[in-house]
Design a protein around this nucleic acid. Structure first.
Lengths: 350, 350
DNA sequence: ATGAAAGCGCTAACAT
DNA sequence: ATGTTAGCGCTTTCAT
């Protein structure tokens, strides 16, 4: 009995049997009335729904799950819920899930591949599928999981597994072009986590863009993709002769902004800064951030939609990752480089 | 059969029966070995674990849930996942849940009491308890739910239901004192949602504090608790003769900051602005925001801990809400009011 | 279109 | 300490 908290239960929860008895039909008919409408005559269906309503009957998803392997829950695993990119992603996911009749189990793995494994093992039997956002696990591990259950990977391309990504290359290309048009000749990329797939792709795109546009691309890092990480990046930046910076993401860029301000470097007058994601805060930091806007809401929603269609039996789109467009948002943190005659790059010290 | 996606399953998943047969013991012994260690001899327990490991057996939480009413999942319902206050709250909750061996089902109700009801109905049978963060439902509805399942309410006090809140009164009191010490004599409170319990409490605290310190308290609003809401509040503010503003929350305060900047009002020189929450972004907006820091992480963690102890059979702490301390964080958005001789309050227009 | 009956995998009395 | 047995609430053949 589940009656350690007896005083709560205001009478037992009604089951299909109660509804069946009350209705003068068999339990299986009641079951069908709810699980496969159409397999029961409209009239009896109506009657059943009515008495069910009256008795306060709700189908028990646990019981259904045990026999039918359907829990109507999907798992969404994120690497760090503290990162505002996930706001919109999670919300997009939640909405798509809700629209498809699914609930969302959320796991925050705190940037640890081990926590991620553990969370997944715990969640797996409860969920019908998984969205892995910014997974820190190896491709092989992910493939193993995908072999047992529907999986969609977000922000990363894993061969043979369905995935949805931002068009990092084009987005970065636009950022590089923008800086080129402003007259910059050298770009420093402030790198994010080594383990991040997107980090590699973005850095490569910067290099290629720079090459084509006859600019120089440097790289510094890796840094933790946080405001704090950006703060230390800013310090390192002082040593590099550069007039423009593209950061792995907005958090890092905001940290760079603050670090440069602290060190007396004017943005954008002396240094231009570009972020990536267009996540919460990038519009009200100072100066507001020029950034490559990732379609965050759509990313979350698309991943869930793909997952749901997999769950419903469609074969996963594993041929190529779904690529969603990015867009450059120009704000106040970018401008032409200082002219030669301007004061030399500043030295450290308030 | 759950074999619409047959090609995934690499053979059937082993059950306690498989382990039992392989081990030469009865299924219930295997069950006990996992669900109540100690009720089985150390030796056989060892043997069972070993073969289980070898066979790749994992206890099926669905089956367990059906009979034992334990899913090891708690539900966390938030009003708007897009609000950065939830970052830390959710993370605190996730961590506490994880520590207690629970997973977290997250629902975003998008500020709608109806969505909230629907989500809860969907989630209820899956979860062992609920944390309701900033619920928009009525006290009566919440009590009804709490009568059926363990519930902890966050950011709101509901009589007869366990709840965890920030010490709004003291926090606001400190904010008012701070403004008083700076020399302000009038404070305008920028109100959040009418339906928010915290909004009422905060406004009352501002009034009482002002009364005691012989200041004047005005109120404007309600506004949606978002940056956008703050933008329109800023416009309305121009009509009020005030030198200091306390906003319902940081989002609103940041909006006010931006709105005032847009309208040419210097903060803090001409107007002081105080927020509430100390949520993400309040430290890097311009000017950085003086705010009442709510113990967000602790709020989430405490709520979950209380919930878990309820789930484990402890009686809910319904006598009085758990009150967690708030703390004033002074940053750049507050300063003494402009002197009489300074230019009159600015008029609208760029 | 509906009913009867057999489980899904596990836990919890009740025996032993 | 361990085995036996009876379900948890539902879906699903297989009959009718």
């Amino acid at each position: 009995m589940a009656t350690s908290r007896t005083e709560r239960e205001p009478g037992p929860v009604p089951t299909i049997y109660d509804v069946a008895r009350e209705c003068g039909v068999s339990p299986s008919t009641v079951s069908r009335a709810f699980s496969r409408p159409g397999r029961v005559s409209p009239l009896t269906a109506e009657r059943i729904k009515a008495t069910a309503e009256r008795l306060g009957y709700r189908t028990n998803p646990i019981a259904r799950a045990l026999v039918a392997a359907r829990t109507a829950v999907i798992g969404v695993v994120v690497s760090d819920i503290t990162n505002p990119v996930y706001f919109s992603i999670i919300r997009g996911a939640e909405q798509a899930a809700s629209d498809a009749g699914f609930s969302m189990l959320l796991c925050d793995t705190r940037e640890s591949a081990r926590t991620e494994r553990a969370d997944i093992n715990r969640a797996l039997p409860l969920v019908e599928g998984l969205v892995l956002a910014s997974s820190r696990m190896s491709d092989a591990t992910i493939r193993t999981i995908a072999a047992r259950t529907p999986v969609v990977v977000l922000n990363r391309a894993v061969p043979a597994v369905a995935s949805v990504v931002t068009d990092n290359a084009r987005g970065m290309r636009r950022a590089v072009e923008h800086l080129g048009e402003l007259g910059h000749t050298t770009i420093t990329y402030v790198a994010g986590p080594q383990a991040s797939w997107a980090n590699g792709v973005r850095w490569r795109a910067v290099q290629e863009g720079a090459l084509e546009l006859e600019m120089r691309a440097r790289r510094t890092g890796p840094y933790s993709p946080t405001v704090l990480g950006g703060l230390s990046a800013a310090r390192d930046l002082l040593a590099k002769p550069t007039t423009a910076v593209i950061a792995y993401n907005d958090l890092l860029a905001i940290g760079v902004l603050r670090g440069l301000a602290r060190d007396g470097v004017a943005v954008p007058a002396q240094m231009s800064v570009v972020g990536f994601d267009n996540s919460f805060g990038s519009d009200f930091c100072t100066p507001s951030l020029t950034t490559v806007a990732a379609p965050l809401h759509a990313l979350g929603a698309t991943a869930v939609q793909q997952l749901v269609s997999q769950i419903k039996g469609a074969p996963p789109h594993t041929a190529a990752p779904g690529v969603l467009p990015a867009q450059l948002v120009v704000r106040e943190s970018t401008a032409p480089p200082p002219r030669r005659s301007d004061p030399a790059p500043p030295q450290p010290g308030s």
